[in-house]
């Protein structure tokens, strides 16, 4: 894999924003996840090297945060909220149905998440961190299909930028 020159420059810009380089751990993990679709061991090692940390510290930090996928995920991460307002408006149903619908899919990873602050649109979900809702399973699947066939432009899986969704 390896950082491209452009990545390296981008990483350096990020590091330079902070008084101490370690602060760049989260931004660089996002950067790596956007590039690779997950946080690979190589990425953690590169970040450790760039920031003067041990890889153990990078892993320790990385594993604390739910947005970082330490295994390759689908190109679309569908986050379904089941917290209170969504729960009482059908969030669990939405989650269960989407999960079974995309169980076999390698493009779509459906996950249950805590409140994503879209409660006025409950039950709410995000597709690569774009907000959607309220929706039932049909409506939600329809939105996901639109991302999959390119009618909607998806963000990267860390939500940083728009990307082509590879099918």
């Amino acid at each position: 894999m390896g950082l491209t020159d452009a990545d390296q420059r981008r990483a350096q810009q990020i590091i330079d924003r902070y008084p101490y380089p370690k602060s760049a751990v989260l931004p660089l993990l996002h950067l790596a996840q956007d590039r690779d679709g997950w946080v690979s061991p190589e990425a953690m090692e590169q970040i450790a090297e760039l920031l003067g940390l041990t890889p153990a510290l990078v892993l320790g930090t990385c594993s604390f945060y739910t947005m970082f996928k330490r295994e390759p995920a689908g190109a679309l991460v569908v986050s379904v909220c089941t917290n209170l307002s969504c729960m009482v408006n059908g969030g669990f149903d939405l989650f269960d149905q989407l999960r079974s619908r995309y169980q076999e899919s390698s493009d779509v990873s459906v996950e249950e998440v805590e409140c994503i602050a879209h409660c006025d649109h409950a039950p709410a979900f995000q597709v690569n961190y774009d907000f959607h809702g309220p929706a039932d399973a049909h409506g939600a699947a329809d939105v996901i299909e639109q991302y999959l066939d390119g009618r909607l432009a998806a963000r990267t899986i860390s939500g940083t930028a728009r990307q082509e969704v590879p099918r």
Binding site: Y18, P21, L50, L51, G52
Partner: peptide, 9 residues
């Protein structure tokens, strides 16, 4: 601001 990272330890 340094580019040569100071290891956290």
């Amino acid at each position: 601001m340094t580019t040569n990272a100071v290891p956290m330890s």
